[in-house]
Simulated scan of single mutants.
Amino acid sequence: MNTLVIYIHPNHQSLNYAFLQEVLRGSRENAKVAEIQVLDLYDEGFDPVLVFNEHKRRRDMHTDPALAKYREQLMWADKIVLVYPIWWGRPPAMLMGYIDQMFASGFAYRDKGGLLPEGLLKGKSVVCISTMQGPTHYPLLMLHNAHKVLMRKALFNFVGIRKVKFFEFGSMESKRGKHARKLERIYQYFKTAS
């Protein structure tokens, strides 16, 4: 199994970075993982801004040479792991900009003229690891699970990815946030994940 870990946080001293390290530690100890690649969108200097004009058309985004490396990573990966904070009830703009550009028509899905397109990323799985300042159940109780609906239904199911797992960790800025236990949970999951 090839694993692509996408890290979306500007600070390497953050708790999100600690979660990234546990993903890598567990994956390296997992005999089912053949290779691991890490894409740090901030370190990479990924530009999340969409630009369309007379020279750059949306319908050609799936062949944009500037995005070729990222398309190759997504095709190579059997498992895609996203590590990011929840800000204002949703993933960071950097991640949304990556999604806007990478999950393009002609690459991630194909329009068939019907109600739903053909997902072209079938067979892959995704794990979303997110942290937030508020309580763990805040997105469910106050936002009607908007984050999970966005990621699972509006994105991953749309492109053919059916196996999506979420780890949403709340109260992460609290001294009583049980950080060590949550980090251990991520390590144990990736140590045995298939």
Score class of each variant (00 low, 15 high):
residue 57 R to F: 15
residue 109 Y to N: 09
residue 121 L to H: 00
residue 166 F to W: 12
residue 113 G to I: 02
residue 30 N to K: 10
residue 99 I to G: 01
residue 194 S to C: 14
residue 169 F to S: 03
residue 143 L to H: 11
residue 188 Q to T: 10
residue 169 F to N: 01
residue 27 S to W: 00
residue 160 G to F: 02
residue 177 G to N: 14
residue 180 A to M: 11
residue 69 K to F: 15
residue 192 T to Q: 05
residue 156 F to P: 02
residue 183 L to P: 01
residue 18 A to T: 04
residue 139 P to W: 04
residue 128 C to I: 09
residue 69 K to A: 13
residue 78 D to Q: 13
residue 83 V to Y: 05
residue 41 L to G: 05
residue 167 F to T: 04
residue 100 D to H: 10
residue 77 A to M: 03
residue 53 N to G: 11
residue 12 H to I: 08
residue 28 R to S: 15
residue 105 S to G: 05
residue 26 G to Y: 00
residue 7 Y to G: 02
residue 102 M to N: 12
residue 144 H to P: 00
residue 40 D to V: 04
residue 168 E to A: 06
residue 93 A to V: 04
residue 56 K to V: 12
residue 89 G to Y: 08
residue 121 L to F: 05
residue 71 R to Y: 12
residue 154 A to Q: 10
residue 16 N to D: 15
residue 134 G to L: 11
residue 95 L to E: 04
residue 161 I to Y: 03
residue 9 H to R: 03
residue 185 R to P: 03
residue 149 V to E: 14
residue 133 Q to V: 10
residue 136 T to N: 13
residue 21 Q to V: 11
residue 155 L to T: 09
residue 131 T to M: 07
residue 187 Y to M: 02
residue 33 V to T: 10
residue 189 Y to T: 10
residue 18 A to F: 05
residue 113 G to D: 14
residue 22 E to L: 03
residue 174 S to T: 12
residue 105 S to W: 09
residue 130 S to I: 07
residue 9 H to F: 08
residue 25 R to G: 08
residue 71 R to Q: 12
residue 4 L to E: 03
residue 66 A to C: 09
